[in-house]
Design a protein around this nucleic acid. Structure first.
Ligand SMILES: NC(=O)c1ccc[n+]([C@@H]2O[C@H](COP(=O)([O-])OP(=O)(O)OC[C@H]3O[C@@H](n4cnc5c(N)ncnc54)[C@H](O)[C@@H]3O)[C@@H](O)[C@H]2O)c1
Ligand SMILES: NC(=O)c1ccc[n+]([C@@H]2O[C@H](COP(=O)([O-])OP(=O)(O)OC[C@H]3O[C@@H](n4cnc5c(N)ncnc54)[C@H](O)[C@@H]3O)[C@@H](O)[C@H]2O)c1
Lengths: 208, 208
DNA sequence: ATTAGCTTGTGAAATCATTCACAAGACCGC
DNA sequence: GCGGTCTTGTGAATGATTTCACAAGCTAAT
């Protein structure tokens, strides 16, 4: 299949969230326009996004909320549970480990790792923090598909290398540093200071 | 001035970070190619990004690290301290309040607010948590330019409305819900579950 | 069965972003 | 001062994404 733009995947994920809300409200069908207004986009965009994957609607009627939800879940790979590990049990790592929003969307935290012996052994919402030396062994055993990186910037690249070597193929990084991964591994970074800098830019350029 | 793409602003922010590292290493000049390789982009992209704002380099030589850093800081509005408030002192709000990375980049947390009386009064790294009823008064007094939203999804829109009414013009939202702001206010959202869903998509479509 | 009223799916057009490619400028060594 | 070697700044070309616009399909009402 043709490569799909990340912006499209991002919107599909948003559409799914709105569909679930709609479903909870008891609606049976939804039009591209309604979906668009929720997501801050246009009806044409919604239809174009969906058209890359097939044809899900009924002309004159719209989309079946439940059928489209199911299709989007399928497309996004959310019909299953993903096992996730978190490395770094500091402030942000602990918050992520306890975040209910992940589990609700099918991402289960199966391990949390740290170097600091003061943190190892503690329990974060049912998952107990282990020493990072157990990382490789656990990855081989538990086969988590996704790893979250919540360690200091300078520890991030060596950690990525270990994770990749152990077989992790998708990484979400929170350390504010550029990282490289070999082909075949997907890396995404969330950089919060950078988000604030974009706001800063917007504030000083408010007049345009 | 012509409107600048967000992707450009994002890269400028990254360039600045690399320049600071370069400066710390004692380098005087840097070429677009060196800057590009750090940021995972191309030299042409770097030059084009900068060209929107002026001409900062010397042909044959490259850019003065310190002069370009200063220019980028100016462009991004980072030549000053920004005051930031955080609403919601739960797990993620507390992590953000204690995050050193913000202060290092000129963002100072001047207030943290919550509804929960068990959390009010605690101190998070020097800033003590106040009752959210003090929000409006404090915003009038402290004039924070930026607010971070770390409350449950259902509390987010009413909170945005209060913040906007009080004069906050830039908001970074961590609640996984769509929010609307009037024109003149900048809103950005960080949606971590969505980041994981993009990874999920990448994993199930690894072969393309 | 026909019509009226919606809404989809999709080529074509328009807009936006990135990459190419090269003239022009700067430095260095001789 | 000149030739050689770099590297910038930038139009033009390419590529990607979004928007437009409309034929075609479905429903419901009569
Ligand atoms: N706190 C935030 O809100 C926040 C926000 C954005 C980004 N970040 C980034 O997230 C990362 C962690 O930040 P934090 O505030 O949680 O810091 P922290 O110091 O609270 O936590 C870092 C943890 O990582 C552990 N660690 C260090 N090296 C390790 C390794 N090799 N293996 C396993 N664990 C290791 C430390 O023992 C510590 O517990 C940093 O890169 C930071 O820039 C934090
Ligand atoms: N924990 C995470 O890692 C994480 C990650 C991504 C997004 N989020 C999102 O961030 C938000 C907070 O998550 P959390 O895990 O910190 O939850 P939490 O329950 O630990 O914290 C929420 C806090 O907000 C406070 N609050 C509620 N309504 C408020 C109001 N009107 N004004 C001020 N404070 C109010 C609550 O008292 C509580 O202390 C949620 O929307 C969540 O989806 C959390």
């Amino acid at each position: 299949m043709k490569r799909i733009a990340e912006s499209t995947v991002r919107r599909l994920s948003l559409y799914l969230r709105f569909l679930e809300e709609f479903e909870a409200q008891g609606h049976q069908t939804i039009s591209s326009g309604e979906l668009a207004s929720q997501g801050g986009t246009t009806s044409a965009q919604v239809r174009k996004d969906l058209s890359f994957f097939g044809s899900f609607g009924k002309r004159g009627l719209g989309y079946s909320v439940s059928a489209l939800s199911a299709s989007l879940r399928e497309i996004l790979g959310l019909g299953r549970q993903w096992n996730v590990i978190i490395v770094g049990a500091g402030k942000i790592g602990a918050a992520l480990a306890q975040y209910k929003g992940f589990r609700e969307r099918g991402f289960k935290v199966v391990g949390v790792y740290d170097t600091d012996s003061a943190r190892v052994g503690r329990s974060l919402d049912g998952v107990h923090v282990k020493d990072q030396r157990e990382l490789e062994g656990d990855v081989a055993k538990l086969k988590p598909q996704i790893a979250l990186i919540a360690v200091p910037a300078e520890a991030a690249q060596p950690l990525v290398d270990r994770l990749v070597k152990s077989g992790v193929r998708a990484i979400l990084n929170f350390a504010p540093t550029p990282l490289t991964v070999p082909k075949g591994v997907t890396l995404r970074s969330v950089n919060m200071a950078l988000e604030l800098e974009i706001l800063s830019y917007a504030l000083v350029n408010a007049d345009d």
